[in-house]
Write a protein that binds this DNA or RNA. Structure first.
Length: 284
DNA sequence: ACGCCCACCTGGAGGC
DNA sequence: TGCCTCCAGGTGGGCG
């Protein structure tokens, strides 16, 4: 579920609620998610202040006041539930795996039914930066260094479809199935086009298209942040109207206006066992 | 180094 | 109501 915009929104919501707050207790309700969590997690976190929250790709990095860094990944179904002081007394739900209680009364719950998510810790920022999951990642899409030339270089020699290659976090960090479909649509590039042929003008269209779909989604998420604590306390999965994702059979919003009597339809295909949504007419 | 496929999990939707 | 199948926004690891 969560791609870069959702992770960004979750990070902002956490920052709004508990940045600077001190952890009183941690209730670790199972030993592992995708990987084992630190066995001494509650002891390592108790009394620590959440000093900084940053995002790298789809990872959230929480820096603590003693220099430790906690890595959070939401996998496919992970959520961070934020409960305000005075609303933190409900018993844990089935998939509430880690519960952080802060001295100011806030409660943060890491909930993840499918458990593809992760919670890891490193003793220092340098150690986290060198972590295999972090060190191998490609550029942030908003980094100015991620330009058409850099993208072309990353795609050079890649003979798979561009759709598949953009899901590789080493090419660019943070894209998932939804926003790859949306970015290719916005750029007018066919998902089946071989990645190494996305160069020149196409690469120059694709980079701003990637940024645009991500920015729009972050904005949509940010607009829901005002009341980041709703009745459920859930955060980060906002409704956004997509152009192509999950819209099989709908008319193409861009080129169907050419011929209203016979509009091209958004189509679904399967690439590497994952759904791709696209317009067969205006994506080349 | 690259490309393909599987596995890891649970839950929701839809068909019968 | 129950049972079955399929599908889901991620990604590391094993294979050729």
């Amino acid at each position: 579920m969560p791609e870069l915009p959702e992770v960004e929104t979750v990070g902002r919501g956490l920052a709004n609620a508990v940045l600077g707050a001190v952890i009183e207790t941690v209730d670790q309700r199972r030993p592992d998610l995708r990987w084992p969590m630190p066995a001494d997690l509650p002891a390592r976190l108790a009394g620590r202040r959440w000093a900084e929250i940053t995002r790298r790709g789809k990872y959230l990095l929480v820096s603590l006041d003693d220099g430790q860094v906690m890595l959070l990944h939401l996998g496919m179904s992970g959520r961070m539930v934020i409960l305000k002081p005075g609303h933190n007394n409900a018993p844990p739900a089935k998939h509430d795996h880690v519960i952080f209680d802060f001295t100011d009364g806030h409660r943060v719950i890491f909930s993840d039914p499918r458990r593809f998510g992760a919670l890891l810790m490193e003793p220092s920022a340098a150690a986290m930066a060198a972590h295999p999951l972090i060190v191998a990642m490609g550029p942030e899409p908003f980094d100015p260094a991620f330009d058409a030339a850099a993208l072309s270089a990353a795609l050079k020699g890649r003979k798979s479809p561009i759709k598949t290659v953009l899901l590789d976090q080493k090419v660019v960090a943070g894209l998932g199935n939804i926003y790859v479909c949306e970015a290719l649509y916005l750029a007018g590039i066919s998902p089946t086009r071989l990645a190494h042929t996305v160069a020149g003008k196409r690469a120059e269209r694709l980079v701003p298209a990637i940024r645009s779909v991500l920015e729009d989604a972050i904005r949509a998420g940010g607009s829901t942040l005002r009341d980041y604590v709703q009745a459920s306390g859930e955060l980060g999965y906002f409704q956004k109207q997509f152009s192509v994702y999950d819209r099989e059979g709908h008319p193409c919003p861009r080129c169907s206006v050419d011929d209203p009597d016979n509009p091209p339809m958004i189509m679904r295909m399967v690439q590497s066992n994952r759904s791709t949504f696209y317009c067969g007419r205006c994506q080349r």
